[in-house]
Amino acid sequence: MDVRSRSRISTDVVVAGGGAAGVAAAVTAARAGLRVTLVERYGFCGGGAVAGLSGTVCGLYEATDNRQARPRQVVFGFADEFVRALDVRGGLTAPLPYGKTWTRVHDPLVWREAADALLRDAGVEVIYHATVTGVLSEGEERIEGVALWTKQGPLEVRAG
Rank of each mutant, 00 (worst) to 15 (best):
T101W: 02
T101H: 05
T101K: 07
T101C: 08
W102P: 07
W102K: 06
W102N: 06
W102I: 05
T103C: 12
T103N: 13
T103R: 13
R104E: 14
R104V: 09
V105C: 10
V105A: 13
V105M: 14
V105Q: 13
D107S: 02
P108R: 11
L109Q: 13
L109M: 14
V110W: 07
V110S: 03
W111D: 08
R112Y: 05
R112I: 10
E113T: 13
A114D: 09
A114P: 03
A115V: 03
A115T: 02
D116K: 00
D116T: 05
D116N: 03
A117M: 10
L118Q: 11
L118T: 05
L119E: 11
L119C: 11
L119D: 08
R120I: 01
R120G: 04
D121M: 07
D121H: 08
A122G: 10
A122Y: 05
A122M: 07
G123M: 11
V124Q: 00
V124E: 12
V124K: 01
V124M: 04
V124N: 01
E125M: 03
V126A: 10
V126L: 01
V126R: 05
V126W: 05
V126Y: 02
I127V: 12
I127H: 01
I127Q: 00
I127S: 02
Y128D: 00
Y128F: 15
H129D: 06
A130S: 15
A130C: 10
T131A: 00
T133S: 10
T133K: 08
G134F: 09
V135K: 00
V135C: 02
L136T: 01
S137R: 14
S137I: 03
E138K: 09
E138W: 07
G139N: 02
G139E: 08
E140Y: 09
E140S: 10
E141N: 14
R142S: 13
R142M: 09
I143C: 11
E144F: 06
A147K: 03
A147L: 15
